[in-house]
Design a protein around this nucleic acid. Structure first.
Length: 564
RNA sequence: UGUCCUGUGGUGUAAUUGGCAACACAUCUGAUUUUGGUUCAGAAGAGUCUAAGUUCGAGCCUUAGCGGGACAACCA
């Protein structure tokens, strides 16, 4: 009793899907197997909402010793493209997940699905309909009023069989005929009102080419694909909830054993100050509001990656947001917390000045250089130290100097003393201004005894500033990103287009930041903390002679936050 | 004038199945600090949408309301 807590790892509460799986395992459903799948349509890039789904599906498989397939839901050749297939694979791998075997494609099952359709026709459960789109709408009814039977609903099985075959053979023009399931036109669930199984589409498919001119609809493909692959838990988002009876209807027709996949719906991820709709993201790309799918302001996986988000931070974030069935909006602050938490431990620190202000140390010998030592990462001693050059003329951040500072300003002001990190204590004596009254030089004296930043006589200073030696500084481009939208829910306004809420200042390019010479041989993708400023990563377009850094996120800042 | 889903601090998720509402983020103090970062200590903030009922006891069960969302693409 007294030692019982030893291995009583406090039980982490399960989400509702895990509860369902636990129950299924307990009752031996589907032989206790857990097999999930992530089924993107290759019509756009993956975003952070997909990342949540990926973490969920692959995570479930890992947790329960199961498997997870990657399956491209490619039943609509008009919208899909191989470019998206490739980016999706790349993103999933980057996130750190491995799908079972080869990637699967719904198009792999076109033959099987066709055969299944024929079987349904033979059972009298499907028919060829020739209602026009307008008529279809009319016959379908509305959510609050029942539909009515199609006049083509009672063709003979032979006729249906022959018409369907002609549809497949390309004997009809596009849109002329449809294959529909015969279910119930008066069902309160619109999806059960004789849903469309196949439509004619003379489009070249990115995998099957011109082999088919009829393509199955989502509802006629998804559950069946799950079934063909042996999926046990088919996790999808809430909007498919109303499709579930249809999912079950088809898989019931297919099932010959005890095995049957089960669809479970959860609430998709929403983030404030951003949009998650693929259509809208595509619009931003096409209208050039951003530079591409991987623009660092985009909530896409590739955008976040370029912005400097780590896979681990995204996985942690997905864990933190949880899984449930109620719709909500997550605060981006949680995402930002996740990346700071990760980078605080991983990113080496360097000093860089975004808005340089020249500092001249009057009592420092002209022409003298010194090499100072700086700690790379105070959170990780194994990262060691590096050398930073120091000399008479330096740059500090403009914001770090005020002629008439308010009382709690710990930084540099006339007659005040601060520490230059890893260097010396300096005291400002006077400033030089240009004709416009702008400060152009800050003159200081330094205390030679305080080398390394240690107070020689126990004297304390409140502020520590980052700085860069002017002579050694590397001028670089730094891209400062801010949220893409100015309002919390840009997609939520029924009157206004979401693009009206675009933040005009979401990108500020600073081409004259000064960085310590350590950055000379950085490579794209490398990440750093610029001390006191934030986390930055080397952009993919960065070149040795033309460095480009992206700001991933600022450091938490309790000073500016409380002062404006 | 329908069907389905869903209502717990500012936000998101819990409460091991009926036992005095917990965790994270955000917020605010204070300490430490060669990053106004990190870390540490602490505070404030919900009585669980409403009403009635069952029960010794309800966030969990029942009923009725109310709020939010989804569904009428030959999209997924």
């Amino acid at each position: 009793m007294e030692i019982k807590s030893e291995n009583t790892e406090e039980k982490k509460s399960l989400n509702f899907i895990e509860n369902i799986i636990d129950e299924d395992i307990k009752t031996g459903k589907n032989s206790g197997i857990v097999y999930t799948r992530f089924p993107p349509e290759p019509n756009g890039y993956l975003h952070i909402g997909h990342a949540k789904s990926i973490c969920l599906n692959f995570g479930l498989a890992e947790k329960y010793n199961g498997k997870c397939n990657l399956r491209f839901d490619d039943t609509n050749p008009a919208k899909e493209d191989i470019e998206y297939v490739d980016s999706i694979k790349e993103d999933i791998e980057w996130l750190g997940f491995k799908w079972e075997g080869e990637p699967k494609f719904t198009s792999d099952y076109f033959d099987k699905l066709y055969d299944f359709a024929v079987t349904l026709i033979k059972k009298g459960k499907a028919y060829v309909c020739e209602l026009s789109p307008e008529e279809m709408r009319e016959y379908k009814g509305t959510p609050t009023s029942p539909g009515k039977d199609s006049p083509w609903r009672n063709r003979s099985i032979e006729e249906n069989l022959s018409l369907f075959e002609k549809m497949r053979n390309g004997d009809f023009e596009e849109g002329k005929y449809l294959l529909r399931a015969k279910i119930d036109m008066s069902s309160p669930n619109m999806h059960m009102r004789d849903p469309i199984l196949y439509r004619i589409k003379y489009a070249n498919h990115h995998r099957t080419g011109d082999k088919w001119c009829i393509y199955p609809m989502y509802d006629f493909a998804h559950g069946q694909s799950d079934y063909f692959e042996g999926i046990t838990h088919s996790v999808c988002t809430l909007e498919f909830e109303v499709h579930r009876p249809l999912y079950d209807w088809f898989t019931d027709q297919l099932a010959t054993t005890e095995y049957k996949p089960r669809q479970i719906e959860f609430a998709r991820l929403n983030l404030n100050y951003t949009i998650m709709s693929k259509r809208k993201l595509l619009e931003l790309v096409e209208d050039k509001h951003v530079t591409g799918w991987d623009d660092p302001r985009m909530p896409t996986v590739s955008g976040l990656r370029r912005r400097g988000y780590t896979a681990e931070s995204i996985r942690n974030f997905s864990e933190k947001v949880g899984v449930a069935k109620r719709d909500g909006i997550i605060d981006v602050a949680l995402l930002e917390h996740s990346i700071r938490e990760d980078l605080n431990l991983k990113a080496d620190r360097i000093m860089g000045v975004l808005n340089p202000l020249k500092v001249i140390i009057d009592n420092y010998p002209e022409g003298k250089d010194e090499i100072l030592e700086a700690v790379n990462n105070p959170e990780d001693e194994s990262k060691g130290i590096r050398e930073v050059p120091f000399c008479k003329v330096l740059y500090i951040e403009k914001e770090d100097f005020m002629e008439n500072p308010p009382k709690k300003f710990f930084r540099l002001g006339i007659n005040s003393e601060v520490r230059l990190r890893y260097a010396y204590f300096v005291k400002c004596t006077h400033v030089v201004k240009d004709e416009k009254g702008e400060i152009t030089e800050v003159h200081c004296t330094y205390d030679p005894e305080s080398k390394g930043g240690k107070s020689p006589d126990g004297r304390k200073v409140k502020g520590t500033l980052h700085w860069v030696s002017a002579k050694h500084a590397v001028k670089t481009e730094v891209r400062l990103y801010d949220r893409l939208f100015t309002v919390e829910n840009p997609g939520g306004d029924k009157e206004k287009d979401f693009k009206e809420f675009l933040n005009k200042d979401s990108l500020k390019v600073n081409e004259s930041a000064m960085l310590e010479p350590y950055v000379k041989n950085v490579k794209p993708g490398q990440q750093f903390q610029f001390e006191r400023l934030g986390y930055f990563c080397v952009d993919k377009d960065s070149k040795t002679d033309n460095l480009i850094f992206n700001r991933t996120v600022t450091l938490r800042d309790s000073w500016t936050k409380n002062n404006n």
